[in-house]
Design a protein around this nucleic acid. Structure first.
Length: 281
DNA sequence: AAGCTTTGACCTATA
DNA sequence: TTATAGGTCAAAGCT
């Protein structure tokens, strides 16, 4: 099975679209920088090409998904407003904080759970932890690349067995110079990724083919290829993996995603999709 | 040789 | 103030 997955996009998109030092222009983002209460950045999603006919799969592929989902999600219903048939979707968005004031107009935590799964993919401890702690978007792990390869270079700098989870956490830093982006990957004993938490945004474009990982097709382009909804279908039947991806928006960065998102190599896209469907099946 | 993972120790935040 | 847990550092070893 390919190491690339739809989730490459998520990982990629969630943190790749914002620039650390820029004020947001796309929504209200909580930013925890020392104070007990989340600090929010005010912004306007002017650059986000949200379509009314936004398909969920599009969303998944889009850098908008996570970075701008704050703007798209109803803080009261937790629904994807762009997805009218979300009730038929295997997805459910959960807002885990209630907007009590202007500074919390958006929930601290977003949770997208895979309703196809009978068991709760997200440990309750984690959900509790997430609440008011990190702004996270959790998506089923079948959206997570098997090797967590989201197109960026990551270097593991630590591993820890945490109490709140029976699975060890691995800590990764982006290898790009001066990039402070980090991610925490929780892996089950059988090697399945049960949770990914992204912290901080990349202050650089995703590396483009300069180092194609051997034995893996993962790359930003590959990630973008996953865009095809058909890939979602094939992927959504994979329940061998579990759980979630979480994004910490405290440090997201706004990037010109057009340069990333609109340069899909169509020549490669189709074969890749075929391959993914084959491998996925 | 460079870059990566591993792993115990250390640091910091929180209750 | 102290104990605990989570996160990070950095040396050693590996590829």
């Amino acid at each position: 099975m390919s190491s690339t997955s739809f989730t490459d996009l998520l990982a990629f998109s969630g943190v790749d679209c914002y620039e650390e030092d820029k004020d947001f222009h796309g929504g209200i983002y909580p930013d925890r920088t020392g104070s007990g209460l989340p600090k929010f950045k005010m912004a306007q999603p002017s650059l986000l090409p949200i379509s009314q006919s936004f398909a969920f799969s599009d969303l998944l592929d889009s850098p908008l998904l996570l970075s701008s989902s704050h703007s798209l999600i109803s803080p009261t219903t937790g629904a994807f407003p762009f997805q009218g048939n979300h009730s038929d979707s295997p997805w459910q968005l959960q807002s885990q904080t209630q907007p009590s004031n202007a500074s919390s107009a958006f929930p601290d935590t977003y949770c997208v759970q895979d309703l196809h799964k009978k068991k709760d993919p997200v440990p309750r401890e984690f959900a509790a932890h997430s609440l008011g702690s990190d702004r996270q978007v959790k998506v089923p792990s079948y959206m997570v690349s098997r090797n967590s390869n989201d197109g960026y270079g990551w270097r593991k700098y630590g591993q820890k067995q945490v109490k709140k989870s029976e699975n060890p956490r691995s800590y990764f830093k982006c290898t790009y110079p001066n990039c402070v982006s980090k991610k925490i990957v929780e892996t089950a004993s059988d090697g399945q990724i049960t949770e990914i938490i992204y912290k901080g945004g990349h202050n650089h474009p995703k590396p483009e083919f300069t180092k194609r990982p051997s034995g893996s097709t993962s790359s930003s382009a590959n990630a973008r290829r996953m865009f095809n909804p058909s890939s979602v279908v094939s992927e959504t039947h994979d329940q061998s993996e579990s759980s979630s991806i979480s994004f910490d928006y405290s440090d997201l960065e706004q990037k010109s995603f057009e340069s990333e998102y609109f340069e899909i190599d169509e020549e490669e896209e189709q074969p890749e999709i075929k391959r993914l469907k084959t491998e996925g099946g």
